[in-house]
Design a protein around this nucleic acid. Sequence first.
DNA 1: ACAATAGGCAAGCAGCCACTTGCCTGTCAA
DNA 2: TTGACAGGCAAGTGGCTGCTTGCCTATTGT
Lengths: 104, 104
Amino acid sequence: MPIVEDVDDADALFKALADPTRRALLDALSERDGQTLFELCARMTTAHGLTSSRQAISQHLDVLETAGLVTRRREGRYTFHDLDTAPLAPLRERWHHPDERTPR
Amino acid sequence: MPIVEDVDDADALFKALADPTRRALLDALSERDGQTLFELCARMTTAHGLTSSRQAISQHLDVLETAGLVTRRREGRYTFHDLDTAPLAPLRERWHHPDERTPR
DNA sequence: ACAATAGGCAAGCAGCCACTTGCCTGTCAA
DNA sequence: TTGACAGGCAAGTGGCTGCTTGCCTATTGT
């Protein structure tokens, strides 16, 4: 049986990447880690031209956290968000070269 | 001005990758180009354990073609499908930290 | 203490998406 | 020519998903 994909993780990962707002959040966090929810909200409206409510952003961050792309750390009344690109590693390997058929 | 993303292409690309059946189709085509619709249908049921109808597969191939990941060439009564991984190139560069964090 | 700040939780709703259903077109072999 | 094969087109439907709405908890400053 060929390894199709690590279904649970991969599905959550790709679904997380399917939304433009979530990709913009990853962009914002790749520029600077440790941003709070309100910081990200402000950045979405200014730098990315998106008008998303706080709750919407929060739910998007939930999805990103489930996919393992974002980690949260609570300090006092602030929740800081950090980017974790580790889950993207297998994605870069997949479907690599069309002229390099994997012999098996 | 930072390039946020090539919205049209990127959105179609990520949405195309969001479905497990479509990812399985890319897997199947990465093993061998030039498969027909019926070949891919058979391969989905056997190798990937998916029970998708011919029309469902065809619609998935439409999405993949729109995203530029699959090209079609008609010969007689057969339509052959080829994989094109070129649209995936910018994906591999994105969210790629030069300074790598968290070896975790 | 009290108000403001930062964020969480959950229900409801509208649009989208994957899939089905039904029928049609074009190609090839006998 | 006729039937089987390979595929296309389009409308309808159920479930998922992104977003809103409303209310709640916790922390901090004065």
